[in-house]
Nucleic acid binder design. Structure first.
Lengths: 207, 207
DNA sequence: GGATCAATAAGGCATATGTGCTAATGCAAC
DNA sequence: GTTGCATTAGCACATATGCCTTATTGATCC
């Protein structure tokens, strides 16, 4: 039997290296290919035999992988797809899991737990491994924004106007203003510029 | 001679593992201690001989390390302190560097570059290694703002309104608007939020 | 002296922003 | 089932913002 092919996609080389080493330990005979961009993931996955395992970061520079996941799932129906990410919010995780992937692992999870999670996925299980206490503390210190408020804030920090945000998100400008007002209150500021400043200095942004 | 002591603080176990392996390669005889929280970093650093190198994540769960840095710098004056972080905006980096540390490395930087950066810091250099894929403007192509425009932009990034800026600078709100309009044109943006975003990501504010 | 530019100030005008208010839908918890 | 919350949408109103024009002062350069 041919060796398992594993494609490992993450834009942080050091994290990728650590993950690669980890996978080598649990799958000693696997052929592991590392990729730093979504394009590299795709070309690596298409090269040679279909991969049996794809481990990919959710937040890639450039295109959001969330949009590419369905296509990926369809192109490699037999592969186990595992998403690793810093995000720990149930809503996002549910969204991603609904795309028919096999696992979601938070980056804050311990090496051992990631290893057992990936092993389980290779055995056909579906695993969601969210962060334990350490990150929940972090979450509680940050102002709690809803999903949509985060979306809007993310566009605000890029200098988009309410009208532009409405266009991009496909909702009404009135609704955008609702979200803006709500997040301004949540961040305890009175202007959007203040929100942007706070977003930058607090590291609320998960770019 | 005693082995070098290295304390490695990061809340992501996999990244920490990758970084640990990397440091083992460039400092084969070092005694590397890993820590997942700020408290662990402190107790590890205080245990035994003073560490010669501290490599710490900027965004730690719990207390912001930015607030602890001055104390850390004071407690371990001889140690080289290197901050690793996801953030890539010049303003934050400058703030951190001003606390008297020896290096700032973005997490997106390649393994080789991180290795050379840490090696350089161990040799006594001060190194700032930002992400290469980020579109940081070169010194030559930085928009030239007048003194007053910089003053105004500096207050804008703190979320102040034109009226507040006028009060703080002791000038008329009309004049503030003149400066705002001028610097928006100079930065090639159409809204103040866009200017703030550009100021953060491009490090225009070097004062 | 004449030219240029930063900085100051002001009025007018169009658009953007932020805050009330009401209201419907869907989803999850109890 | 009811309660709560997120999300959606709209209207009205006050304020902020950004751009246009004109104008004066002081500093610097040729």
């Amino acid at each position: 039997m041919q060796n398992k092919r594993v494609v490992l996609g993450d834009d942080h080389p050091v994290f990728r290296g650590g993950l690669s080493q980890l996978i080598r330990q649990i799958l000693p005979f696997a052929d592991i290919v590392e990729a730093g961009t979504l394009d590299e993931v795709l070309s690596a996955a298409r090269l040679g035999a279909p991969p049996s395992l794809l481990v990919i970061d959710l937040l890639f520079p450039g295109l959001s992988i969330e949009q590419s996941l369905p296509a990926l799932r369809q192109e490699f129906p037999k592969a186990s797809i595992v998403i690793v990410s810093m995000v720990n919010d149930q809503r996002t995780i549910q969204n991603v899991m609904d795309m028919g992937i096999d696992g979601f692992i938070n980056k804050s999870v311990s090496v051992d737990d990631i290893a057992t999670a990936i092993t389980a996925v290779c055995d056909g299980d579906v695993v969601v491994k969210t962060s334990s206490q350490s990150d929940i503390l972090m979450e509680s210190e940050k102002p709690a924004l809803t999903q949509r408020q985060s979306d809007v804030l993310g566009l605000m920090v890029e200098g988009k106007s309410n009208k532009e945000i409405a266009l991009i998100l496909g909702i009404s400008p009135f609704t955008v203003r609702i979200h803006v007002s709500a997040l301004l209150r949540a961040l305890d500021v009175s202007t959007r510029t203040g929100a942007v400043a706070k977003a930058y200095s607090n590291g609320i942004l998960t770019s």
